[in-house]
Design a protein around this nucleic acid. Structure first.
Lengths: 213, 213
DNA sequence: CAAACTTTGATCCAAATTGCACAAAGGCAG
DNA sequence: CTGCCTTTGTGCAATTTGGATCAAAGTTTG
């Protein structure tokens, strides 16, 4: 490899933010946007925006700004959502239902191609318009889908086991909504999402004297 | 004030992680835990754990470790969840339902005391066992509840307006699940949660050659 | 009771991330 | 076509965060 340009995680997170903004802008018919305008729309510092993009090459024209449609295509390619990105969801509970029903998913080219559960009462029923499948069929189904991304919306007690099952089925990118730490081999990329973490950060700031230090 | 010891946000996030672990441990009857064991359970570096706690004083005994029950109480106090922390939820859609039904919320002393919506078809119905209230009653209801934390589970198009409404009702800590940037005065603390951001970070790593650099 | 072992809390250093400043590039007006 | 204005991309300094090291404190064993 010539040079593996390591991209900071925060930069990737912001790329998704830019993507959101661009989707919105393009539907509003805007043609170009400057980094200063990005700062107003997203709250991200203008030079931060430019530096984020600079990890991947040059996208804008000095004196003009960035072409909305073109930039959207390029970020989509970077994030591997220029063509539909297949995703598998495990857990057909409330959270799973919310995720399947979330419109932003499809708008950004993430396609939940299958939903699995281990509850016989749920298997065979439909979540919106996708059938809930038996978790035991994970390997065989994903042999067809070829998803590398798994979303875990299962109880903590099942998370570790389910994650390992996903790995056996060929997935190596895991988004874990269960409030527990998952131990995985180094080549498996796990990302934890915890509502409680977010709430805790807020709650801390509910100190006696508005301690916004 | 003698010295306003600024606490890093990542530290606060990890405190919530420790809290989770402690809740689990105490139900399993463990009495003490060492920072090395914390590293095994949570994946957080042992010295990181000790440093996080050192922002708030001394909690452990050399040669022994930390008393599980005592540490749990102390972290709970830091995060303002030693007594129930009232929370208001706006938006009774799928995500809202998932949040109300999430058991970890109550276990960690976050109490969703009211759910609001602007959809007349939903107002008056029940979400689990809490009634869905009219968003127009936000001020009057929160005068009784006194919540400072608001969770926004509303469409992007409504987020900004609803956030401002929450501020008028006395809330100053906002957890925003809508995929949009909310502009607020500096004394309002806003935290954005975006599934798409998390997915994007994963999806990026679905590069051609497993580029785990 | 003393020596060896364990674990904390603090300090130090390295790595990562952010924000600023400036030169180069492109467009526009006269 | 020339000079001015706008905006990008990048190098650099400053802040923030993470990981390692070490002395001091506490426990256990013989």
């Amino acid at each position: 490899m010539p040079s593996p340009p390591k991209v900071p995680i925060p930069t990737l997170e912001r790329l998704a933010t830019y993507m959101r903004m661009l989707v919105e802008l393009s539907s509003n018919g805007s043609a170009t946007i400057s980094s200063a305008e990005v700062e107003v729309c997203t709250g991200v510092d203008a030079s931060q925006f430019r530096k984020d993009l600079s990890y991947f090459g040059m996208f804008g024209k000095p004196g003009v700004g960035y072409d909305v449609a073109s930039l959207q295509r390029k970020i989509a390619r970077i994030l591997r959502i220029d063509s539909p990105q297949p995703v598998v969801l495990i857990g057909a509970g409330n959270l799973g239902a919310a995720l399947v029903g979330y419109p932003g998913m499809a708008e950004h080219n993430f396609e939940i191609r299958a939903v699995f559960d281990n509850n016989f009462a749920k298997i065979g029923r439909k979540l919106w318009d996708t059938e809930i499948l038996d978790i035991n069929d994970l390997e065989s189904v994903n042999r067809e889908i070829g998803a590398r991304i798994a979303i875990l919306a299962v109880p903590s007690s099942a998370a570790q086991e389910v994650a390992e099952h996903c790995v056996r089925a060929g997935m190596d990118l895991i988004l874990n909504f269960a409030p527990t730490h998952i131990k995985m081999a180094a080549n498996i990329f796990v990302r934890d999402v915890s509502f409680l973490q977010e709430l805790a950060v807020l709650s801390f700031h509910a100190g006696p004297s508005d301690d916004h230090s």
